[in-house]
């Protein structure tokens, strides 16, 4: 499309700000990050350089690979749990609730927690799972255990629980949208052709909702992958995730080049994931 003289000023006025925003706050910082990843550090200073020492160190040191693998594992677990919780919920909202009013109300109740500070929501679980927390009080008062247990908090399970709670709306939203867009006629057609509700789900509803599954899983995975609050609040000594490592490199360890290299790796991982997910999504895209 060629721009005519007449529309150009308007076009420039409209898009210069967002363009500047993207350039200054995204492209330039990413460029800096990638560049610094090749620098060398001679404590306490960094020198511009072009060498792969930082990457070599990350890949050679089991400390880093362990944390990266753990982060992948936790993110995957969070994604699977969020899907197992979010799908039935979205299905229930779309297909079981008949009243539009009740449906919107329940949907909002899933979304509303997003308006509460993320930190607060993570902190809630510290209160619930702690030794003198709500869960222990309940167990003790019902007599199921004699004394408060300290097994709930400060481990990877607590992290998964917390992250699932925080990110499940990001799973429910795309699932709700995609399920809500499936024409009811298709379900009627399936039943009309002698197929009961169970097989109708597996043969019609689920395949047509794959786009939402991919979108929700991608969001949940990426958000969990980059999280650094849950490890600090409810994760134990073996709860460190990649984002915490990054924080350390830029903070306490004062090793920006290594931190930048690590951040570039994380970015690459996430980008590969997004690429895969959009391919999956395109392969399964269907015109309804």
């Amino acid at each position: 499309m060629t721009l005519t003289r007449r529309t150009f000023p308007g076009f420039a006025a409209l898009f210069s700000l967002p363009l500047a925003w993207v350039l200054l706050l995204m492209v330039v910082p990413y460029a800096i990050m990638v560049a610094v990843g090749f620098w060398t550090r001679q404590f306490p200073l960094f020198y511009p350089d072009f060498q792969f020492g930082n990457y070599a160190q990350i890949l050679a040191d089991p400390q880093y690979t362990t944390v990266i693998l753990r982060t992948l594992k936790i993110a995957a677990l969070v994604t699977v749990c969020a899907l197992l919780l979010g799908y039935p919920l979205a299905y229930f909202l779309v297909f079981t609730i008949r009243s539009q009013k009740v449906r919107n109300l329940l949907y909002m109740s899933v979304i509303v927690p997003l308006w509460v500070s993320y930190l607060l929501r993570a902190y809630t679980w510290k209160i619930i799972l702690g030794t003198d927390g709500a869960l222990n009080s309940l167990l003790v008062s019902t007599g199921l255990v004699s004394a408060p247990l300290d097994i709930f908090l400060y481990n990877q399970t607590a992290m998964v629980v917390t992250l699932v709670y925080i990110f499940v709306p990001f799973m429910v939203m795309p699932l709700f949208t995609v399920l809500d867009n499936i024409p009811r006629r298709l379900l009627e057609a399936s039943e009309d052709l002698g197929v009961g509700p169970f097989m109708t789900f597996w043969k019609v509803i689920f395949p047509l909702s794959l786009g939402g599954v991919v979108a929700g899983a991608t969001m949940t995975f990426c958000l969990s992958f980059g999280d650094f609050v849950a490890p600090v609040l409810v994760g134990g000594p073996d709860g460190t995730m990649v984002a915490n490592l990054l924080q350390t490199q830029f903070g306490a360890a004062l090793n920006w080049p290594l931190g930048s290299a690590l951040a570039t790796l994380v970015l690459a991982l996430v980008l590969i994931l997004l690429q895969l997910s959009s391919r999956l999504d395109r392969a399964g895209r269907i015109d309804l």
Binding site: P183, E188, D192, G196, G284, D287, L288
Partner: peptide, 20 residues
Amino acid sequence: SPPYRRPVNTVFQDYALFPH
């Protein structure tokens, strides 16, 4: 009886073909 237990089949107005 639910639709899947009736000896009838329907041609829907908008066809309702399975797009996938």
